Simulated assay, not measured.
Amino acid sequence: MVHKIAIVGLGKIARDQHLPSIAKNPDFELAAIVSRNAELEGVDHFTTLDDMLAARPDIETVALCTPPQVRRQYAEAAIRAGRHVLLEKPPGATVAEVEWLKNLAAKHGVTLFATWHSRYAQGVEPARAWLADKTIKSVEIVWREDVRRWHPGQDWIWEPGGMGVFDPGINALSILTHILPAPVLVTGAVLEVPENRQTPIAAKIDFVAVTGHTVTADFDWRQEGPQTWDITVKTDAGLLELSGGGSVLRIDGQTQLAADDTEYDGIYAHLAALLASGESDVDIASLQLVADACMLGAISKVEAFIE
């Protein structure tokens, strides 16, 4: 069965990732775009989601690629119209609203998929399997990138609900919560917030696992040049390193895997499986960690960020 899907929000992530992965997946047909400012040649275009839902009852699935601040209202409209919903990460602006959408989807009998694209990096599942029977001693996350490169002119990330540096940082946390055998808790954080912005440009977070080992995370949006997306895990059986956002896996310095970026291909393969089984997948563990870091975080004001 080929599933007709509509993309809501035709921004950078939709163009760079969603469109190519949909195009190469035989289980999906891109049937419509919903955007106030952008169109795609040869594809039906609507300026509002309500218009699309009314005009195209044959479109059964909606991929929401909007900023998180407005995602709940769009997801609610689609779910109430009986459509399946894919949520870009982060799945919402708050933990509670994502839980609410999960319950709403179950009530209406539709699939809700809260995606975490970094979990589909090729090194993540092998890392999870290798760590499953190991004793973890410590974990260090270093996730530093250039906001001007990845989010040019996107003011929404600096507004409440936009998450600031946690927008990329949550990718690391989505891997962390997936590969570790035991959950972790936030114990403290320092959030560096530019004096002219509402969300952090950098953050340092301390965690402790329920099994006792510590985790540290260093997120920064001010790194120019080569970007850094590394997770290092010390265990009783050696050192595991995930780099390149999870695309490269090393154990004790020996490369086990180095793969191309196929994260969104994995997302759409999993979405097809969920639709076939009638199930949902809504994991909010990493979103909860971000919320906790913001609750416990000490605010440090830093110089203004100028685009």
Rank of each mutant, 00 (worst) to 15 (best):
L249I: 02
E303D: 15
V193P: 15
G109K: 14
L30Q: 08
R149E: 15
A6D: 03
V147E: 02
L191W: 05
L104H: 12
L289S: 08
D230K: 11
Q122I: 01
H178V: 02
L101Y: 11
I5S: 11
K107F: 01
S21L: 05
Q223F: 00
Q73N: 14
L49S: 07
P26Y: 03
P68I: 01
Y120R: 08
D58S: 13
I13S: 15
L87V: 06
L185Q: 15
I201P: 02
V98Y: 06
V282N: 14
E307Q: 05
W229D: 12
G297D: 14
T94P: 02
G212S: 09
V139C: 02
S21N: 12
Y120P: 03
A14E: 01
V210T: 15
I136H: 09
V248P: 03
L173T: 11
I201S: 13
D16A: 13
W156V: 01
V248F: 04
Q154T: 00
D133S: 10
A209V: 06
Y74W: 07
P68C: 01
H213E: 15
I59Q: 03
D261A: 06
I141D: 04
S174I: 05
G9Y: 01
A23Q: 15
S277F: 00
S35K: 11
A38P: 05
V110C: 08
I157Y: 01
Q69H: 00
I175A: 07
D50L: 10
K204G: 12
V98W: 10
G188C: 08
A31R: 13
V70Y: 00
I251F: 14
D44Q: 14
E140V: 13
W150S: 06
Q17A: 13
D260F: 02
E125S: 09
L64K: 05
R148G: 13
E41D: 14
V62W: 06
D283Y: 07
V110A: 10
H84C: 03
Q122A: 15
C294E: 15
A258W: 12
D58T: 06
V165W: 04
D27E: 12
G169E: 03
D230H: 08
G42K: 11
A276N: 08
A6K: 09
A121C: 03
V290I: 07
L275K: 12
I267H: 10
E39A: 12
H117P: 15
K89H: 14
N37W: 03
Q69Y: 00
L49K: 01
P57R: 13
S35F: 02
W156S: 00
W143K: 05
L274P: 04
L49G: 09
I136D: 05
T228S: 03
W158Q: 01
P168L: 07
W158V: 00
L275R: 10
P181T: 04
R80Q: 09
Q17P: 02
L289F: 05
N196M: 07
Q69F: 01
A127D: 12
I136V: 14
S138R: 14
L249N: 08
D133C: 03
T111I: 08
T94V: 08
E303A: 15
E140F: 05
G123K: 07
G92K: 00
I33A: 09
N103H: 11
R80E: 14
K102P: 02
T211K: 12
R250F: 07
D27C: 05
H45G: 10
H3A: 01
G266C: 07
